[in-house]
Design a protein around this nucleic acid. Structure first.
Length: 371
DNA sequence: AAGCCGTGGTA
DNA sequence: TTACCAAGGCT
């Protein structure tokens, strides 16, 4: 089909393109909380939250986060339990731990001022090529590209770029293009406008080309190829993982919870004890009780399963068989193994899958069933 | 390069 | 229901 890269830029008039794009954004941009801000820390937080996450989802989290941690210093010095709780339900939890680690580094190395050079800001944990460009351009007015999924979709259409955007190396092609296109008078609006256009007009499945402020500059609109772009290969299917899990109470009615490992999936979040099983589910009960004894030296009895839940992640799917039961032995509590009341549980961050489990347990209890 | 890392919305 | 999508980064 078409060639990509530099010669594509000759098909559009850069100055008029910038003016049409930025003019549209100035009039039509959404009123979002982080667009009232110039504090680099606040812009930074919004960009981390927005990674792979919808605007509507982020808004309430952002507002709550800024109430709890108004300044970089407030956030950098907060307990990890607190920051995970503030992130509970947002997903990709390493984002918030990396963000705090990076904020601490800003305190120590940069006297609390977010650095404004590509080299320095890119060295901070959790700041990759996109976020570096976004913070630099939006907070500091530095003309750096901020190439996300929106920008690749929009520019693949405008410039007729047929490279597979699922390939990591493809991003560089778009960064080169943005370096040539970006407004040096207003890099902040230019970058945000490309993303806003992708979110509101130049959408994945059915772009509103007739409403597009830059359709005169768009090669895909001219040739009718907007539905074929961008080219994106699809990913493989997720892996199935089967788990048994127990909501176990002691004689005082406290519930046993444990903290997940420091790295990997849902790192450092709290959960109900659960174990992977490979055999068929015929003896899920016994399987669960054996592993509970082996790993935690806790003896318990459990009922017939009170049900199951399924939970899909980006790369795997959990099938959790849920049991409720009573703890018969003494529990040695540790920093990663606790007995807590329902009220106390409110201050711990749980994965959504385990929140769903608790819901089901409470329904089950409400129906008057024992154990 | 490709797999790991969450969740909720939508066609 | 399945599959894909949404302001990515790390290893």
């Amino acid at each position: 089909m078409q060639k990509n890269s530099v010669e594509c830029l000759e098909i559009i008039d850069i100055n008029n393109f910038q003016a049409d794009l930025i003019g549209w954004f100035t009039n039509e941009k959404r009123d979002l909380p982080w667009r009232k801000e110039r504090d680099p820390y606040r812009i930074w937080v919004s960009e981390i939250m927005l990674q792979q996450t919808r605007v509507d989802t982020v808004i309430p989290y952002y507002n709550n986060f800024m109430e709890q941690f108004p300044t970089l210093d407030d956030f950098a010095t907060a307990d990890e339990e607190k920051i995970l709780k503030a992130w509970e339900g947002l997903g990709y939890y390493s984002r918030v731990r990396n963000l705090q680690s990076a904020c601490k580094e800003v305190q120590e190395k940069y006297e609390g001022v977010v650095p404004n050079t590509p080299k320095e800001i890119s060295s901070l944990k959790g700041i990759g090529p996109y976020t570096a460009g976004a913070v630099l351009s939006i907070a500091y007015g530095v003309p750096e590209p901020a190439v996300d999924g929106n920008v690749m979709r929009v520019l693949s259409r405008i410039l007729s770029i047929w490279e597979d955007i699922a390939k990591p190396s493809t991003r560089k092609i778009f960064e080169e293009a943005v370096r040539k296109l970006i407004s040096h008078e207003n890099p902040s609006y230019f970058n945000q406008a490309l993303m806003e256009l992708g979110a509101l007009i130049c959408t994945p499945t059915s772009p509103s080309c007739l409403l597009c402020p830059v359709r005169e500059h768009c090669n895909a609109f001219e040739t009718g190829t907007q539905k074929e772009l961008p080219v994106k290969t699809k990913k493989t299917k997720v892996k199935d993982v089967h788990l048994t899990a127990g909501i176990l109470t002691d004689v005082k009615g406290r519930i046993l919870i444990r903290k997940r490992p420091e790295s990997g999936l849902l790192a450092n979040l709290w959960e109900f004890p659960n174990f992977e099983y490979v055999t068929d589910l015929k003896n899920g009960q016994g399987d669960f009780l054996n592993q509970l004894m082996n790993e935690y030296e806790v003896e318990a009895i459990v009922n017939e399963s009170l049900g199951s839940i399924e939970h899909v992640f980006s790369h795997l799917k959990w099938y959790i068989q849920i049991y409720s039961g009573k703890i018969l032995s003494e529990v040695k509590e540790t920093p990663r193994l606790k007995l807590v009341s329902l009220d106390e549980m409110e201050s711990y961050a749980f994965p959504v899958s385990h929140q769903k489990m608790l819901q089901q347990f409470l329904e089950f209890k409400k129906d008057g069933l024992t154990l």
